[in-house]
Design a protein around this nucleic acid. Structure first.
Length: 604
RNA sequence: GCCCCCGUAGCUCAUUUGGAUAGAGCAUCUGCCUUCUAAGCAGAGGGUAACAGGUUCGAAUCCUGUCGGGGGUACCA
């Protein structure tokens, strides 16, 4: 993480202040705790209320060490810190410290903060916020991974958008990222589809609106199977034949698969989602035997009730099935095989699975198998995939009160949602900006923006309730609000006649509204790293909302006469300074939206 | 039964490794466009953070228990 010069100055001055005020304690403690500037730097926090300062050091925990009361410590240290801060430099004081209860609140010199931030943003442009921490280490990210022969529902959206965003985030941090779409095109479900198609389907089923028809078949299968359990046996039988390469099953499967692939491709284009590798379960068909053999060699397998299993020696988790009693493989078999393959091909630093939390036990099992196997093989840690795989889980997308379930037909088709949102956006544009030439494209950008953002604006582990009214609302904490702010920034830049430059009078940007915007711009690089650390794009979404809010507040600020205090005016110096802030904000919102997977319209 | 996750304003959610007076948005109400995009801004009301204990200088956050919701629990993926 790039060190912040304001925080460094504060930490050094404050460590010096502690040393001089508590010299006796320093003698016994040495350069540790509050007497170490590094320690102070590491323990800085962000004040809850931004008006209290940009960063803060809580001193409560040092009460015992210093044998003093926290408010008293803060009250003594603050002036001493300020003394060091002003004496150590010839130039202006770059940070001022203020005691507030048990906190030392620090505020960078507004003018210096403005200049260092804006220079950094304008110099880096689109690269602002990027870093080199990844050092080109390889990260595999598996996301989306829908099942073929089912429509792309809102339930798949969460994995898709989190993964798509993480891929961009890790790329920005100089990781060598690889986005993988692991399509579910194998397994008993295709036995089900084959059985259902033979019973109720026809050539017509595959023609018009065919994915919807496939869903109807799938739902009908499960309805019927409730009453007639022999259907499930038929499905298993059909899948077994497919796995053995029987011609008629294979041909039908190919048809179902092609319909879905075309469909998914279209959806991903609409969403702007990209992958580096689109693969599928059937790709692993000829590699599973070797994978099973490897586990057998490692002495992990046994036969139980006719099935080939790995007992993972955990009372809380069931064994992993590799082969069913009828000889057919399971999802776990293919996942393990796929992992072997990915390791062999890519020797990844990390491999992430963006999959719902319902599967958390499953991934525990999976990773345990790998761990046991490598232990048994005596792999040395540097050449082991164990410990490098991670299940990035997220909450369910609920519809009504229930989880969305394809089997029960309780599913909202993603494209319906996007179409509705885009339609609504179009109406808004027709009312408000009827001259807009790119109305078609722009309404689509806004519609998808609303839908995508709804998935990323809640922390990953939480369940999301899918609510039409909420998704179709474009006001407040929404994607369209960010896009609107971006369009507004672009509009200002179009209206400005001069050239945007960071060579401006920074004293003109020292107001509290400007400072708030600048603080948030300065936080952006850390926010990207936070998002990467927790594998959660939410941090970026939340920060952008704050930034947009702070900017809009500045934009609509009124002057003393109660008139709006315009960004652009006859005052050339002032306009030049403000437009530099506008450009910086526009760049960061644009980049942030990009990292989330939203497009940023110039006009709307 | 056992295991995991969740419970914060009427609703949807923040509060990053425990920190300051628990904050936003939606909805409701009140203001603000003859000049930079009102998809905006300003303001009002709205809280026993499910409940009860515990740890701590300090708990929405950590621990224990209770209640409520969701998920998982070998031949689905």
């Amino acid at each position: 993480m790039a060190k912040d010069k304001f925080k460094i100055s504060f930490s050094e001055a404050t460590a010096a202040a502690f040393k001089s005020l508590y010299a006796d304690k320093y003698e016994t403690t040495g350069d540790n705790q509050v007497f170490s500037s590094d320690f102070i730097y590491e323990n800085l926090e962000k004040p809850k209320d931004p008006s209290m300062g940009r960063f803060a050091l809580p001193v409560f925990r040092f009460g015992k060490l210093l044998e003093d009361k926290p408010p008293s410590i803060a009250a003594k240290v603050a002036p001493e810190s300020n003394k060091f801060l002003s004496s150590s430099l010839n130039g202006p004081v770059i940070v001022t410290v203020e005691a507030a209860g048990g906190f030392l609140n620090a505020r960078p010199n507004a003018e210096l903060a403005a200049s260092s931030t804006i220079v950094a943003v304008l110099d880096s442009g689109r690269d602002y916020g990027n870093s080199t921490v990844g050092q080109q280490r390889k990260i595999l990210i598996e996301y989306s991974s829908p099942n073929i022969a089912k429509p792309f529902g809102v339930g798949h959206l969460r994995s898709t958008m989190i993964g798509n965003s993480l891929r961009k985030i890790f790329k920005a941090l100089d990781y060598d990222t690889m986005g993988i779409n692991f399509l579910g095109d194998w397994g008993t479900q295709f036995g089900k589809m084959i059985v259902a198609y033979r019973r109720w389907g026809s050539e017509d089923t595959l023609k018009n609106n065919s994915v919807q028809n496939l869903l109807d078949l799938y739902v009908k299968f499960h309805e019927t199977a409730k009453k007639n359990s022999s259907l499930e046996d038929d499905a298993r039988e059909a899948f077994k034949k497919l796995e053995q390469g029987e011609k008629s099953e294979t041909e039908l499967w190919e048809k179902l698969k092609n319909i879905s692939l075309t469909e998914f491709d279209r959806i991903y284009k609409i969403l702007g989602v990209e992958f580096d590798w689109i693969t599928s379960e059937s790709f692993l068909n000829d590699k599973m035997a070797a994978a099973i053999a490897r586990l057998e060699r490692a002495g992990l397998t046994s036969v139980s009730e006719g099935a080939l299993i790995v007992d993972i020696d955990d009372p809380q988790l069931p064994p992993v099935l590799l082969r069913k009693a009828d000889g057919a493989t399971l999802y776990a078999t293919r996942d393990i095989t796929g992992l072997f393959y990915r390791w062999q091909e890519h020797k990844f630093h990390q491999s992430l699975y963006i999959v719902g939390s319902a599967q958390s036990d499953y991934f525990k099992q999976l990773f345990k198998v790998i761990e046991l196997m490598e232990k048994s093989e005596n792999s040395d840690a540097s050449n082991a995939m164990s410990g490098k795989t991670k299940h990035i889980e997220f909450g369910w997308v609920k519809f009504g009160d229930k989880a969305m379930s394809t089997r029960q037909g309780n599913i909202v088709i993603l494209e319906d949602v996007i179409d509705k949102a885009a339609e609504l956006a179009r109406k808004r544009i027709e009312e408000k900006n009827p001259g807009l030439k790119t109305i078609e494209e722009t309404s689509r950008i806004i519609g998808t923006g609303a839908v995508i953002f709804s998935q990323l604006s809640v922390r990953r582990h939480k369940d999301i309730r899918f609510d039409w009214d909420q998704v179709l609302n474009f006001e407040g904490e929404t994607g369209p609000y960010l896009q609107y702010t971006h369009a507004r920034l672009c509009s200002l830049l179009r209206n400005y006649k001069g050239t945007v430059s960071s060579d401006i009078d920074y004293t003109l940007l020292a107001g509290s509204e400007e400072s708030r915007v600048i603080d948030l711009l300065a936080d952006f690089p850390d926010t990207i790293e936070d998002a990467a650390r927790d594998y959660d794009p939410f941090y970026i979404a939340a920060m952008l909302l704050k930034l947009a809010g702070a900017f809009n507040k500045f934009y609509q600020r009124k002057n003393k006469q109660g008139k709006s205090d315009k960004i652009l005016s006859d005052d050339k110096e002032l306009s030049a300074a403000r437009i530099a802030l506008v450009k910086s904000t526009q760049l960061v919102i644009n980049k942030g939206l990009y990292l989330l997977g939203l497009e940023a319209p110039q006009e709307m």
